[in-house]
């Protein structure tokens, strides 16, 4: 009893200074509290502003200027050119517009195939590694290697494999399997599209695998057990339980893969060097080349802005469509 009283007294004594804190300090606390989140965000905001937002606005402004090599040092003095850069880019009968349109279609086909295959392989591998077996951890680590390897080191290895006379691919296809009458070129000509696609899928599917494996872990095992009790076979379990449960993960994954693949620069740049073949002329590398070969930055910026508008449109439509369908389902 007496102990409790003493306790309360000491507690009271300790707490006393806090309770009697001057109003000034409370005011400062309040201001500090409300300003604090902004202070914490400040470094992130500054970095984003300098590297992302200001260049983006600058890029949009540049697209309306006649910004050629004469104005690189002082780009503000470049004359305005209205929509001229856009007109040139969208004039599909003239060489510049025609090349851009061709590159756009190549990129579309490439992206659809790469994302589709990466997702398909990713979902297959994640389902097949769901049940524990000996060596599963090792296999998973191996599957993630392409994601872990630096892009330039991995892609340069692929370019060695695709060499016509010294590469592994032609050795297997021509020398060992006799599938081709002559050794094909892989890094120039029409085949380059398939070479690029192979490397891109090799590089992208581990990310799909990683994400989907994480998604699979959230499906309770009881669901499968209940389905098995009801007589559902393995394929039905996959079709009725696994795939529908992965829907939310898929929505984000496909969008992310689409944006990464459509904007991919590293893979073609390392695989083909500075001049990508026509058949594999992805849009990022096309804009890079037309900007740095001609030093016409205004033209390049206009193309970048068009690319951004296209991506925004696709993303908006995608989010709208998937949201509405989710709304209907509920």
């Amino acid at each position: 009893m007496s102990e409790k009283v003493i306790d309360r007294q000491t507690v009271g004594k300790e707490a006393a200074p806090k309770g009697a804190a001057p109003a000034r300090r409370r005011l400062r606390d309040k201001f500090g509290r409300s300003a604090l989140p902004y202070l914490l965000l400040l470094p992130a905001l500054l970095a984003e502003l300098l590297i992302h937002l200001v260049p983006m606005v600058t890029g949009i402004v540049m697209a309306f200027k006649q910004l050629t090599q004469f104005f690189i040092r002082d780009w503000g003095s470049a004359p305005w050119s209205g929509f001229d850069n856009f007109k040139v880019a969208l004039e599909f009968n003239a060489p510049v517009g025609k090349a851009l349109l061709h590159s756009f279609w190549v990129t579309c086909g490439f992206t659809v195939l790469s994302v589709g295959l990466s997702w398909l392989i990713g979902v297959t591998a994640s389902i097949f590694t769901q049940d524990a077996f000996r060596g599963r951890g090792l296999l998973r680590a191996a599957f993630m290697l392409p994601y872990a390897l630096p892009v330039f080191a991995a892609v340069i290895t692929w370019s060695f494999m695709f060499q016509r006379d010294t590469g592994l691919i032609n050795h297997v296809l021509h020398d060992q399997l006799h599938l081709t009458s002559d050794k094909p070129f892989w890094l120039i000509g029409d085949n380059s599209f398939w070479a690029l696609l192979t490397v891109s899928v090799w590089k992208s599917w581990p990310f799909a695998f990683l994400t989907l494996t994480a998604g699979l872990q959230n499906i309770p095992r009881e669901l499968y057990e209940a389905a098995a009790l009801d007589g559902a076979g393995v394929w039905q379990q996959i079709r009725r339980i696994t795939l529908p449960s992965l829907r939310p993960v898929n929505l984000v994954l496909v969008l992310v893969l689409f944006l990464w693949t459509f904007n991919d620069f590293n893979t073609p740049f390392v695989l083909f060097g500075k001049s990508a073949p026509q058949a594999a002329d992805l849009i990022s590398i096309h804009i890079y080349q037309s900007s740095f070969i001609t030093w016409n930055f205004g033209q390049g910026s206009a193309m970048s802005v068009l690319l951004l508008l296209f991506l925004l449109l696709v993303t908006a439509v995608y989010l709208f469509a998937t949201n509405r369908r989710r709304g209907e389902a509920e």
Partner: peptide, 24 residues
């Protein structure tokens, strides 16, 4: 939203302006 959406923008869009901004 702003910070996350910068992830979707093509790198090539920043490259040219950033190059110019750094030079300037």
């Amino acid at each position: 939203i702003t910070v996350l959406s910068t992830q979707m923008f093509p790198g090539i869009l920043f490259l040219l302006p950033l190059f110019l901004i750094f030079v300037n």
